[in-house]
Design a protein around this nucleic acid. Structure first.
Lengths: 239, 239
DNA sequence: ACAAAAGTGTTTTTTTTACACCCATGT
DNA sequence: ACATGGGTGTAAAAAAAACACTTTTGT
């Protein structure tokens, strides 16, 4: 039996060759699709950014922003570049999510899908106006359209992953770079935990955690009594 | 500016060609190293399986079991195959962990590192006796040796990831396919939460969760009074 | 005045923590 | 008999859950 393992020597073959890719064995080369699940939280809903294809194949289907990885860049670099190009946003928070390597996930080609979570404050969002190649829209996380090949699966997986990630305050913050009302924050927790929370108990708990502070301003846009606006507390000095 | 995004058409180029890889652009081909962090829990310690290289490059360094991904297999298949070949174990629990794509993570070649967590019951472990190509050993998770290129980083990342995963009972079970004592289980939780737990409180809590049951047998190997042996409760019928 | 959403405190229940002595086995 | 690790219960403290009326704004 030919041992495929201990192929470390193969991995390091160019250690001696001092050349890149010359000895690359065709059985071992792959293409990688970097896929970004870009989420925001807006008007009480978790939303994800999708683009619509205007041509075959998959004409009319929606898709997550994605790109083929180049050998000259890291996955994170590729994702940041893609978001900048497609959405006009830079410096997005990114986190590796999952890898999809089923042989037939695309019709006629083997491409590995590498999915990442991206988070952006809803107040930061704007679109490049002059990029009309594709139609784009933010979809509520529980009302998703038909998407190309396995992008539905990838997105559903990312949503579950995200719900867990958001339990970490440092991740949650990325959705709220600007100020927010207590109710908005509560809605995120209701999504994460999948149940309604009591307003009084939530307020008590979140304030006792000492992670947010009132800004002194009020939300003037909503109906009813204006809500106080809060912000996450910056980590202060070392002392 | 040439748009790299919206390269979906490139992804699907073979949709029309009905041929695989013919049109593959060299800038977009990558090699993938599938890396398995195989953990077990033995004698009160979390342990990971490493192999030692006997030749240059990195002679004498230790490494995680790994393999180059072939275009004809999924990452999970590659990992399972590798574990079977190197360790003689099949049907290991596997979970995607993280992706390492720094350009220079290997000396002279760009290879993407795809790390997975594998879990195995300590009573299930045995080694292929006739595989003497490489020396192997189980290392305690907090006493790791010097490893090849970025395997140290990958393993440390996997350990942190694992600690979180083990908070899910369904994952924890994979470390305990056979029976175990209350103290053994407690030790795992002490590692996960990074602190000592009170024996009485732990027992009370874990029993109230209704996830384990006594087997009726006792552990006859230890010192002192023999401990009762427990097992995870199988999910019963639908009713 | 009324609709809409925000703000507020107390009591009960549940969960968590703290803590010390006896038990079964091997040597 | 003694060393070793296993097994057990109760009380105090902390955290979570349940619950309803008043306030501020716009219309």
């Amino acid at each position: 039996m030919l041992l495929r393992s201990f192929l470390f020597d193969k991995l390091c073959i160019n250690y001696y060759n001092d050349g890149v890719g010359d000895t690359m064995d065709k059985r071992y080369i792959n293409q990688i699709e970097v896929i970004i699940n870009l989420f925001t939280f807006d008007k009480g809903k978790l939303k994800v950014l999708l683009f619509r294809r205007s041509e075959e194949p998959f004409k009319g289907y929606w898709m997550l922003p994605s790109n083929l990885l180049m050998v000259s860049e890291t996955i994170e670099e590729c994702a940041l570049y893609t978001i900048e190009e497609m959405v006009g946003l830079n410096d997005i928070y990114l986190k590796q999510c999952n890898v999809f390597s089923k042989i037939d996930r695309l019709p006629n080609e083997r491409i590995i899908g590498n999915s990442l979570i991206g988070l952006v404050d809803s107040q930061t969002i704007y679109f490049k106006k002059n990029n009309s190649l594709y139609e784009s829209a933010w979809f509520t996380y529980d009302e998703l359209p038909k998407m190309v090949y396995d992008h539905n699966e990838i997105l559903i997986n990312a949503i579950e992953y995200l719900k867990n990630e958001l339990k970490q305050v440092e991740v949650l913050k990325k959705l709220f770079n600007n100020c927010f009302t207590m109710t908005e924050l509560q809605k995120v927790y209701e999504i994460i935990y999948g149940k309604e929370l009591d307003r009084r108990n939530f307020r008590k708990k979140i304030l006792s955690m000492n992670i947010i502070e009132p800004t002194g301003d009020k939300n003037i846009n909503g109906n009813g009594r204006p809500a106080e606006l809060y912000q996450f507390i910056e980590k202060k000095s070392l002392f």
